[in-house]
Simulated scan of single mutants.
Amino acid sequence: MADASSPQRVILVVEDEPGIRDGLQMLLELEGYDVVVASNGLQAFEVLAAKDCDLVITDQMMPRMDGITFLGRLREQTRYRALPVIMISAVPRPPEAIGPLADAFIGKPFEAPRLLQTIQRLLASGRTAPIA
C-alpha cells in the first residue's frame, strides 16, 4: 500500500487492451496511487504533458506507437530520462531493445504482488524525472 504520510504518487498506465488497463487502474487505485491512463504511446505523451507522473507502466505491443518506440522517445527527452518505467508484455522474454529503456520487465500474465513490489522498489529508489 502507498505510504499515507507521503503525497499520492502518480502512475501512468499505457495499455491498449481495455480489460488490462482497467484492471491495472483499479488495482493501483486500491493501493493508494493516483492513476492516469493512455491506450498507446502517442496518448501517453499527451498525458505526460498535462500531468507529472512518478512512474510509467507500459505495454510493449500497442497500435499507433508501440512501447519500445514510446520508451525510446521518452528517454531522448532530458525531462523523462530518469522516470522509472516498467514494461509489461505477452512476449515471454524482454527484447534486447528495452535494456537501456525500461527499469523492469514483467511478462503477461503477471501476478499483482510482483507488480506492486516492483512499483514500490522503483518508487523507493528515488529516481524521478526532473522538473522542467
Rank of each mutant, 00 (worst) to 15 (best):
L116F: 02
L30G: 11
P84W: 03
A38Y: 03
V35W: 06
P94K: 11
R21I: 07
G107N: 12
A97E: 15
V35M: 02
A90K: 07
E31C: 08
D66S: 09
T58R: 03
P84Q: 02
I68Q: 05
F45E: 05
P84S: 00
R93E: 15
L28N: 05
R79Y: 10
G19M: 08
F105P: 00
R75N: 00
R75E: 01
T58G: 06
L83Q: 00
P109E: 08
I98H: 06
V56P: 01
F45D: 07
A82V: 00
M87P: 00
P18L: 03
I86D: 00
R75C: 01
M87C: 05
L115S: 02
A38S: 08
V85T: 08
G32A: 03
E46C: 05
R114V: 15
G23R: 02
T58F: 00
P63S: 12
E76D: 14
R75P: 05
M26G: 11
R73N: 12
E111V: 12
F45R: 02
S89E: 08
P109F: 06
E111S: 12
R79L: 12
P100E: 08
Q25M: 11
G67L: 10
C53G: 03
E111T: 11
L42K: 15
Y33I: 03
S39C: 14
N40G: 04
S39L: 11
R73E: 15
R79V: 13
A50D: 15
P100F: 02
L115D: 04
I57G: 03
I86C: 06
D54H: 05
L115R: 03
G41V: 11
R114L: 15
P18I: 05
P84F: 01
V36S: 10
T78N: 13
D54I: 00
I98R: 01
P84G: 01
L27W: 04
G67C: 11
A38P: 03
P95I: 06
T58E: 06
L71S: 10
I57R: 02
L101M: 01
S89Q: 01
M65G: 08
T69E: 15
E29S: 13
R79Q: 13
M65K: 07
L30C: 11
G32C: 05
D52K: 10
R114I: 15
Y80Q: 06
P84V: 00
L71I: 07
A102Y: 02
R81G: 09
T78E: 14
A112G: 10
V56F: 07
T78Q: 13
F105Y: 10
D66V: 08
A102M: 02
L30S: 13
M61E: 10
R81Q: 14
T69F: 09
V36C: 14
E31V: 07
I88T: 12
Y80A: 03
P100M: 04
G41Y: 09
N40M: 10
D52V: 12
C53Y: 00
S89F: 01
M62T: 02
M26A: 15
I86G: 00
Q60P: 00
I88E: 03
D59C: 02
F70T: 07
Q25P: 06
A102T: 03
V37S: 10
P84D: 04
I57Q: 04
I68G: 10
P109R: 04
R93P: 02
L30Q: 15
V85C: 05
R73S: 09
E31L: 08
V35A: 02
V56W: 05
L71P: 07
D52C: 09
L28K: 06
M61N: 09
E46T: 12
I20Q: 09
I88N: 04
R75W: 04
Q43N: 12
R81P: 04
